Structure formats: structure tokens, C-alpha cells
Simulated scan of single mutants.
Amino acid sequence: MTKDLSGIEAIAFDLDGTLVDSAPDIRVALNAALEEAGLELFDLDTVRAWIGDGPDALILQALRRQDLGGSEALRTRLRKAFDAATLAAPLKHGSVFEGIPELIAGLRRALPMVVVTNKPTPLARAVLDAAGLLQPMAGVFGADAAAQRKPAPFLLQAAARQLGVEPARMLMVGDGPADLLAAQAAGSPAALVAWGYGGHAAADAAAVAPAWRVATPQQLLLTVRESRAVRRDEETTTTTRY
């Protein structure tokens, strides 16, 4: 059954795990910060499972794994080092997911797009720029304070206001529970991508916050095109009738 997206007027994308496979770069940045502080380093699979709630939560996970709460001074030091490493090489080890460049190029002619991410805005913009995806975006909404992080609806609501659309007409596309729950809180429809980092946690969240399952970027692009074609036909019919 084809998903009806005829009422959609904008699309909000998550970043890490949705547009880019940035886990290798996040691991390098985290380990650079931990190594500088003389702490334990972590492998890629471990770090990938922690991605989704932003760098502060990532650092806290790393400290807890070492039975460290971490003083505020230590967390601040680690975050500063993490940011520096990210900005120095935003996407040196990772890559854009297959099919994403074609998806963005195709959607650019159809709908305004924004990025809504728990990564702080300067880091998100650096990654998008390195990925060649910054210019097509109408805005980048990063979590620059803890209260803004998904699953709170703050970032989606801010994006909708900037674009001048109702949240109910903006599709949230993401790979994790926070994306689905944020969409539910904002009153936005959601799409859960199959290629991201969310795994079972995202599938469980989908039971609470229903989402359209998207297997490939091409499926999303074709569905948007088909839905918009149907909408144009309906608008033409209505105009002709009156």
C-alpha cells in the first residue's frame, strides 16, 4: 500500500544514521577526547549504539561505561575536545548513505527540506557541508541546549515556524526512537528508515508512535513524487469543476 504524502508541504530529516553514516567519525571524535583525558576508548559498534541523543549524552554514556559519573569540568573538557575533533574532520571516515544524494536532488525540486538533529548546530552544519548536503537545506535545527533535544518537539516546531507550515504537514524522517516520539509530540507524521542506527529500539518506539517504514531512499522519493502528482491532479480537477 502506497503511503499518502499528498498533504506534506515540507520534510525534516534527522542527520546521523539517516542522511550520513557518521558513526566512524563520531567514534574518532569521542576517542580523541577520551584519550586526551587518559580514559578508556571504545569500538565502533559500541559507539554506534549510543548515537542519537547528541554529544553530551554520548560522553555521559562513555563515562558511565567506565563507572565514572564525571565532574562537570571533565564533561566540559571532553565536550570541547569532541567538538574540536569533529570540526577538524566532519566526515573523514564516514559517508553519505547510498541513494541519499539522489533523494535530496529529487526532493529539492518538490519540497523545502530541513535537518532536525540532536547534534549541536555548528557540528551539524559542518557535517552537512562535508557531505555536500548543506546547500539544499532550507535550515539546520540542532540541539544547542539539552531541553531542545528530541524527543522534545521544540526543534520540529521551530522548523515548521521558519518554513511557514503546520507541523502536521511536515514529515519527520529519521532512524531512531527520538525522531518518532518528537514527531508524535509535535503532531507531525513520521517515517522510519531501515538503514539507520535505531534498530530494535526504533521498532519498539514505532509501536507507541506509529511511523511509515521506508526501506530505501528511492522509495521515499518515488512516494513523494507519486503523492504530489495525485495532489496536482486533484487540484486541477477542482479548478476545472469550478
Rank of each mutant, 00 (worst) to 15 (best):
F13M: 10
F13A: 03
L15K: 03
L15P: 01
D16G: 02
G17H: 09
T18W: 01
L19T: 04
A23Q: 01
A23T: 01
I26P: 00
I26M: 04
R27N: 02
V28S: 03
L34R: 06
E35N: 08
E36K: 09
G38A: 08
G38H: 09
L39H: 04
F42W: 13
F42I: 05
F42T: 02
F42N: 02
L44A: 07
D45N: 01
V47M: 00
W50M: 02
W50Q: 00
D53R: 01
G54F: 02
Q61I: 00
A62F: 04
Q66E: 08
Q66P: 05
Q66W: 05
D67C: 04
S71E: 12
S71T: 14
L74K: 14
L74A: 11
T76C: 06
T76N: 08
R77Y: 12
A84L: 10
A85Y: 10
A85W: 07
P90F: 05
P90T: 07
H93A: 15
S95G: 15
F97H: 06
E98N: 13
G99M: 12
I100N: 03
P101G: 12
A105M: 14
R108N: 08
L111S: 02
L111D: 04
P112E: 11
P112F: 06
V114M: 05
V115D: 07
N118R: 06
P120Q: 04
A124P: 05
L128K: 07
G132L: 07
G132T: 07
G132C: 11
L134F: 15
L134V: 14
L134Q: 12
L134R: 14
Q148M: 15
K150C: 03
A152L: 11
